[in-house]
Amino acid sequence: MSLPRLPTMPPPYAATPPTPARSAPSAAQPEESGTPVVRHRPTGPGLPFSTPESVPTIDPRLALALGKPLRGDSVARRTGQSIRRLTSSASQEVAEETRIGRELQQPVTTGRVIAVTSIRGGVGKTTTAALLARTFTHYRHDPVLALEADAALGTLPVRLGAESVRWSCAELAHILTPSMQLTDITGYLVPVTGGGWLLPASQGRLGAPLDIRSYRTVTLALRRYFAVTVVDCEALPGEVARTAMDTAHGRVVVAPLTAEGVGGTRIVLDWLAQLPHEALASTVVALTSGTPDLNLDLKTATAHLRETGVTIVHLPYDRHLAAGGPIRTELLGLVTRGAATRLAAEALQRAVQVR
């Protein structure tokens, strides 16, 4: 079951519309396979990079070992959900889905940047960023970008189903010019199956971390072309993560449903309350369950974090997400799909309120 599509609405994004690629030195044209290949590389000072090679996101030897992806809900759970739907009010469910869908389609005057971070790795930060990017791409009719700002072997390309990556965030920072059109920019990005674009942080190798200057250059330039940019940040207190949380329009803090996870996230929320631009008011917490058994009472954890005034959205355990690999929306559990949609709507609602 895929996410429901709403009737087509007028394009809400007032950014530079796509135009035919020009013969400028910066233009990049995709091959028939869809892999961006740079035909003409910009020349001039400050361009130390040669055209990078395309690198697979998963070693071919491991790709052969991938099994069939699991469904998020077991057969027994799907059966129970079908029975409950027969006895519940379908009109109320449709009305709620329509309301959330319209929130996700609301116009934005300038590109909105939503930063996703956490207090440590392994809590579902990248998975949450991928879910947000896929949700925005599904509902919106304007360009959506997933930007990876964690160069330490980040897995956002894998989660979004990219087979290979080429240009990185740091490399693109040296190439961007104000005269570029959307068609020029997308030649350096990875097209995501199902829609949207991806800019990875690295080519799957250990390298220097993304620097603050490159991050600022890329995000400030690309928000001209994309209605929504979802940034998968490094974990706090990394410098780029702190910068991203300080400069983004909307913020999502991913917190594991454990005592130490909730406690550490509360410290982060108290820090956000001290930042300018009403940072805490534009923050949503994604409370994630990494196992089917709750390690901490959900109501208690939610109440503790809500004392700061933020909205909490619980992302439940999902077999499909827990298995790793590319996220296929149609295989997500019913509750997971609903939670991801609500999280995206809450994050965007706060992001559009920031001027």
Rank of each mutant, 00 (worst) to 15 (best):
R242D: 12
R242H: 01
R242V: 14
T243V: 11
T243P: 00
A244M: 05
D246S: 13
A248K: 01
A248W: 08
H249W: 06
G250C: 03
R251L: 15
V253L: 15
V254S: 06
V254L: 03
A255D: 04
P256E: 06
L257V: 12
L257N: 12
T258P: 05
A259Q: 11
A259M: 15
V262E: 08
G263S: 14
G263D: 11
G263M: 11
T265R: 03
T265Y: 10
R266Q: 12
R266K: 09
I267Y: 08
I267G: 01
I267Q: 13
V268I: 15
V268S: 13
V268A: 15
V268N: 04
L269C: 08
L269G: 12
D270E: 15
D270K: 04
D270V: 12
D270P: 00
W271I: 09
A273R: 10
A273S: 12
A273T: 10
A273C: 02
Q274W: 01
L275S: 07
P276K: 02
H277C: 12
E278A: 10
A279Y: 02
L280F: 01
A281Y: 00
S282V: 10
S282L: 07
T283V: 09
V284R: 00
V285G: 00
V285F: 05
A286D: 10
A286V: 13
L287F: 08
S289M: 14
G290H: 04
G290M: 11
G290P: 02
T291P: 00
T291V: 14
T291K: 02
P292E: 14
P292A: 11
D293F: 04
D293R: 05
L294G: 04
L296N: 06
L296W: 07
D297H: 01
K299M: 09
T300A: 15
A301G: 09
T302L: 01
T302A: 04
A303D: 12
R306M: 14
G309V: 10
G309K: 05
V310W: 00
V310K: 00
T311Q: 11
T311G: 00
I312P: 02
I312D: 09
V313I: 15
H314A: 15
L315F: 11
L315T: 13
P316M: 08
Y317N: 05
Y317W: 15
R319F: 03
R319A: 15
H320L: 10
H320D: 13
H320R: 02
L321D: 08
L321F: 00
A322S: 14
A322F: 04
A323M: 13
G324E: 15
G325H: 05
P326Q: 09
I327M: 03
R328Q: 14
R328C: 09
T329Y: 01
E330L: 10
L331C: 08
L331P: 02
L332F: 11
L332E: 11
G333T: 13
L334H: 12
V335L: 07
T336W: 09
T336F: 04
T336N: 04
T336S: 13
R337M: 15
R337Q: 15
G338S: 12
G338A: 10
G338P: 07
A339P: 03
A340L: 07
A340H: 01
T341S: 13
L343Q: 05
L343N: 04
L343S: 08
A344M: 07
A344E: 13
E346G: 00
E346C: 03
E346W: 00
A347S: 14
A347R: 01
L348I: 10
L348W: 04
Q349C: 05
Q349E: 14
Q349I: 07
V352H: 06
Q353C: 09
